[in-house]
Write a protein that binds this DNA or RNA. Structure first.
Length: 259
DNA sequence: ATGGTGGCAACGCCA
């Protein structure tokens, strides 16, 4: 089962680039972030015509997550638990059943800039809530995949110019520590199991020729429960997507699971 | 170098 995460930066703006990538990469499951659309305006037909089931959790203008799956999705849940006052659409869960059942979590973690400030406080509180949900998911002892735009650069080797990010919410020590606290519950960050570990990125800013200079960062991650990590066959980043017409500033990151 | 680029949606906010 090929499972991908892709921050598309607007579903309407990616009306050509996203289907083109789906047709060539043929993922079984895609976790989308920043659909920037309400559910009613999401172009379901384009994906249903390609054989995908579609579940969305959108909002007007900003954020928004979705799941596309060639296998039916069950027990869909929208919103990260513990956020009664949180109206931002950043979390969706569903179960997909292939050879075995896999619990999928699609997430768009808050950016948090500028730091310090209320946006950074929101990022850290959201990560604390995510840690609670991640811990609860482990109790089921089933394959779990938590994938999305984490807005966290885990290590210096995950940035072309780490010195440029030292005061940024994506790379501050507190952000990285909160990421490790989730990881150390017992999750495996799939791409980090690959060698070499440096020089691989999933985001290049639109500004200042970041793509042309390969000035990227790796912030899109797939975290696997032990039962999912046991099934991991392959992990990759579809870097070339960034060089095409009308690209998102992120590219797809994917895994193959024996599931 | 306090700009630069892009999306959404409406002349500003977010990344």
């Amino acid at each position: 089962m090929k499972i991908a995460t892709f921050n598309i930066n607007g579903i309407k703006a990616r009306a050509e680039a996203l289907p083109a990538w789906l047709d060539e990469a043929e993922p079984d499951v895609v976790l989308l972030q920043e659909i920037k659309s309400v559910d009613e305006a999401f172009p379901r037909d384009s994906f249903e015509d390609r054989g995908y089931f579609v579940e969305t959790h959108g909002q007007k203008s900003f954020n928004g997550v979705a799941i596309l799956s060639k296998l039916p999705l069950e027990d869909v849940e929208r919103g990260l638990p513990g956020g009664e006052k949180d109206d931002q659409a950043r979390w969706i869960e569903a179960t997909v059943v292939g050879k075995t059942a896999v619990r999928l979590c699609g997430l768009y973690l808050p950016n948090g800039n500028p730091a310090p400030g209320p946006k950074y406080d929101y990022k850290l509180s959201w990560m604390a809530r995510m840690r609670d949900r991640a811990a609860a998911l482990l109790l089921d002892e089933i394959p779990v995949v938590m994938a999305g735009d984490y807005n966290v650069i885990p290590q210096a080797e995950d940035a072309a110019k780490p010195e440029a990010w030292v005061d940024d919410a994506l790379f501050l020590p507190e952000s990285r520590a909160a990421f490790r606290r989730i990881l150390h519950l017992g999750y495996t960050e799939a791409f980090r199991t690959r060698e070499p570990r440096s020089g691989h990125y999933s985001f290049w800013d639109y500004q200042a020729g970041a793509w042309q200079k390969n000035n990227g960062i790796r912030i899109d991650h797939l975290l696997l429960s032990p039962q999912a990590a046991d099934l991991l066959q392959e992990a990759g980043i579809d870097k070339e997507v960034r060089g095409r017409d009308k690209p998102s500033d992120h590219v797809p990151v994917w895994i193959a699971l024996d599931a």
